[in-house]
Simulated assay, not measured.
Amino acid sequence: MADNIVKLTFLTKQELECPVCENTFQKEELLSGGGRMNAGDLTKELHRIYIPTNKFGAVYPLLYPIVVCPSCYYSAFPTDFANVSGERIPQLKQGIGERKMVLSSLFPDLDFGNSRRLQEGVASYVFSSMCYESAPTIMAPHFKQAISCLRASWLCMDLHSQDKGENYDYLAKVFYRKASFFYSRVVDLEQKGEESVESLTHLGPDLDNNFGFDGVLYLSGYLEYKYGQRGNPERRAKQLKKARSTVSRIVGMGKSSKAKPTALLELSRDLHKLIKDELNELGIDS
């Protein structure tokens, strides 16, 4: 019976209007409750794993946060989507062709008018990162590019787990490296007072826990340690020393608190030791 079909998502009643191309559309949202999300472990990347259930199968909450215009692929987090004015509008219009081409060979059948698959999920974050290139500093664009690239890498790994013959793991590494660059940039800009994340209410990086700026510091160090270049030992050592200094800002305080949960503190201590050990192997006195 049609009435007994269990739904995973719904379309918002209120239509959204794209500020770039004026197309109107409804956004897909994930229904909550009913055992749809069966939370599993938290990874070293602060990513929450969800365990498939018999009733709903695999559920990927990260498919849905980004608002994407199905017509021109302008994309942003919900609080920013309508906030476009001035010279950004022609810039975003000029980028329509690039957005439509950038993933066309990988995902030729993208369709944001129907239920999102992992392909649309990855694409939503790629388009988001592209669109934030023209965003003003007040929107903390580098942070939103960082979190977009990190989430894109997670969804690429989900695709890889479904189909190991399409090299989605390689694509994930591309986004991990982009995320590493942006997270490092966020920390640098925050230190210089040139771009702040202070006004943001959720720094993620995933949807459940908000690890705040300490999470940003940790990921800046972790992504550099895990995905940074290794071809040039001298440059590697320089980047690791910077990563160690960043992570030290977390472990230096010593005790866990509401703002600095035990899980993050323990992960940071482990990372600090790993970086120290590699510096020793490189002959750097840590």
Rank of each mutant, 00 (worst) to 15 (best):
S180A: 08
F107Y: 10
S286C: 11
L200G: 13
E266C: 05
G95I: 07
E17C: 12
N83K: 01
L271P: 09
R117Y: 12
G86K: 04
S184W: 02
Y170E: 14
V174E: 01
S180F: 07
L110D: 02
Q94R: 07
N54A: 04
F143H: 09
K260R: 15
L42A: 01
E195V: 02
D285L: 03
N83D: 15
L171E: 06
Y176R: 05
L171C: 01
K55R: 07
G40P: 15
V122T: 14
K93M: 09
L110M: 08
T262R: 07
S220R: 02
F127M: 09
C72I: 04
R235H: 02
N83W: 01
G34F: 07
P90D: 06
G204Q: 13
A140S: 12
C72L: 04
L155Y: 10
C149D: 12
S184R: 03
K255A: 15
M139E: 15
Q119W: 13
M139T: 05
S115H: 13
P65C: 13
E166G: 05
A243R: 00
V122F: 02
R99M: 05
H202Q: 12
T9N: 15
L274T: 04
G221F: 08
Q119H: 09
M139Y: 15
T12P: 07
V251G: 03
L30I: 11
R249L: 14
V186H: 14
L189N: 02
I49Y: 07
L265R: 04
N54V: 12
E15V: 04
G283K: 07
D188A: 14
E266R: 07
Y64C: 10
S245N: 06
L223C: 05
